[in-house]
Design a protein around this nucleic acid. Structure first.
Lengths: 270, 270
DNA sequence: CCAAAAGTGTTTTCTTTACACCCATGC
DNA sequence: GCATGGGTGTAAAGAAAACACTTTTGG
């Protein structure tokens, strides 16, 4: 880590790191068929709508020592950005998310308060409830509800806000919600995910129709009894839900070329 | 620029730069009221639909010497990422775009062919036709149609493909198309932008209704005579087109806090 | 007058929303 | 039985698409 005087540092390239915003739902939305009653006693204020939670790590170094921050690590040049994000997750939280996508790259001199100038390539991860339980809370790693966050280090609060904004937007036009439930789920559970993300109640009947007619769901044939009412059918997402998520081109250079050839042809047709 | 042996480089942080994908339309879409007949003789294959063009710069250094590449520059730590993108644009093309937004950050060991490992924070810019003409083509700077690109340096071809994909997506749910026309435009000109980006013809009547009812357009009162037919009314976008473009939080830390307070409240309402 | 694009009206179709109602289960 | 959420039906409202038609210009 090269240290020079101030004017030297200003002209040189900033330091580079990856951080990850991890999001999960509490019990109302995240259950896959089976037992699902943990994480419930933290005092839900809105009993009807689940809340979004994220794990934070406590910093052990200055600046912002003892503050909570997003998991992250410095970037090495021998692995991909995505792998670096995975590695950062692994080393701090042991999580292995279904969904990991680049969110945004934050930089600029205003981010360097107290430390070196820093550019952070931020990924975001969505985990189902089963995965979320794999995180072992400790003194330095802890879940927080997104609507009751502590003071965060650096500009991490803005980063979380941005991730939540992106989630609310993206849930409208992609099947991203599937990443916050388990592999198999009832329509009510999936609806609770949408309700938690959007912050409002949805009509169960219309929700059902919309999702089923989208063709992305697949009935498992199984059903789940929960409480004194009719059992709910269990669904899963159809394999390879097409063309809704991120652009494949950015994920891997190998698959990119294959997909691009078909898709990209501006000024064609008609 | 620190050089060591190979294993030292692998562990250290990669180099960091910004690149910019600049997009503009040819005459069919980009004209603001007035004369607009340049850039037309390059052999349009689809006379009814305009094409997207982008400027490239010729590399003067290895690797990929003499190849065409996206404008870019190394990143310094004393300016914001966005300003760095602006600076890169300014120094190579003299363009000053209406629209400049972060596109994606590309990295990973596979990008380092022949050179140092490199992370590129890529911005994309959209310019109107008047601005596009400000670019002085030279031996080392030249416009290319996106459907007839030369071989590009590094993975810049994938980056351009990704930008085009993003444009096609984003035009559906934002007023981003306005950035490819001038400040004032007829509905036909705006429609030509949509047609060029989407690659298909649109019904003029329905297009008119859709755009006008969206409330984002404002009649100027002026009209434009062009050819032997009824003159077209000239519109402009209403100032501060709200809530459609990018999340303001990532643009400037100052305005971010103000906007976030109102917007972000997951699990609220209802 | 004619050609061509601007602009309006109308019908059809599809999607979304609201809400009434039936079904299957535990108690 | 009856309360509860799962699941279906249906009508009204709204948005998008298709297309006939009128208007205003240059030639």
């Amino acid at each position: 880590m090269p240290l020079g005087n101030v004017s030297e540092r200003r002209r040189s390239a900033p330091d580079l790191g990856v951080s990850v915003v991890i999001l999960a739902l509490d019990k109302h939305g995240g259950a896959s068929a089976g037992t699902c009653d943990s994480m419930e006693s933290q005092g839900l204020s809105k009993p009807e709508v689940g809340r979004l939670w994220l794990p934070l790590v406590r910093r052990v170094k200055q600046p912002f020592r003892d503050c909570w921050a997003l998991p992250g690590a410095g970037l090495r040049s021998d692995i991909s950005l995505e792998d670096a994000a995975f590695a950062a997750l692994e080393s701090t939280t042991k999580l292995h998310p279904h969904y990991l996508e680049q969110l945004y790259t934050f930089g600029g001199p205003h981010r360097s308060q107290g430390g070196l100038p820093m550019v952070s390539i931020v990924y975001w991860a969505l985990v189902g409830q089963a995965e979320a339980e794999a995180l072992h809370e400790a003194h330095n790693v802890q879940w927080f509800a997104t609507d009751a966050l502590p003071t965060l280090a650096f500009d991490h609060a803005s980063i979380v806000d941005y991730a939540l904004w992106r989630l609310r937007n993206k849930i409208e036009y992609s099947s991203i919600a599937s990443r916050l439930v388990g592999d198999e789920f009832t329509l009510a559970q999936l609806r609770h995910v949408y309700e938690a993300v959007l912050g409002k109640a949805l009509d169960p009947a219309n929700f059902r129709r919309r999702l089923l007619s989208s063709g992305t769901l697949q009935a498992t044939g199984k059903s789940q009894v929960r409480g004194r009412h009719r059992p709910a059918a269990i669904y899963r997402y159809a394999a390879g839900t097409p063309a809704d998520e991120a652009y494949e081109g950015v994920l891997s250079a190998v698959t990119a070329n294959r997909l691009l050839a078909d898709r990209i042809s501006v000024g064609d047709s008609q």
